[in-house]
Amino acid sequence: MSATEASMTALTIRLEDELFAVEASRVREILDLVAITEVPSAPDFVGGLINVRGRVVPLADLRVMFGMHRPEPDEDTRIVVMEVDIDGEPTIAGILADKVHDVTEIESASIEEAPKVGMRWRPEFVKGIGKRNGGFIIIPDMERIFETSGGRSASAANSEERPAS
């Protein structure tokens, strides 16, 4: 079945022990783990930079936003390079994934709004929750997540203003 409006083509990734789905059309490529350059004073969520074919690309860790543990990378760790809109400006960013699963169709009908209560993460970061094979797939609201982080990084920069003395 081809992708219609009734469904969403998504790349599923695993963070900690939860499945997440990101829009496949926004994914540029999937990389093995590369050298990550730490950015001092940047918020943990976007604490690194990577080199993607000669471009310097910020690396985001969604686990920070969902309050998850951040174990050391292992052989399953991948970087999903994708396009996100930051304040309306398309930006290339990398996202750390504990594991990349597959590309799948998620029926729109099966996607439910995130419940306001009873979830262990902030509801505004979740666009919806899909169901597949009896399990849940979280669809994160990337725009919202990156917008928030932008504001945060700015405030972090201000606190960094004061030089060490």
Binding site: R55, A60, I86, G150, S153, S155, A157, N158, E160
Partner: peptide
């Protein structure tokens, strides 16, 4: 290379 918007607030 310019830094992306995510890091443009970092003045150092």
């Amino acid at each position: 290379k310019q830094l992306s918007k995510l890091h443009s607030g970092i003045k150092s």
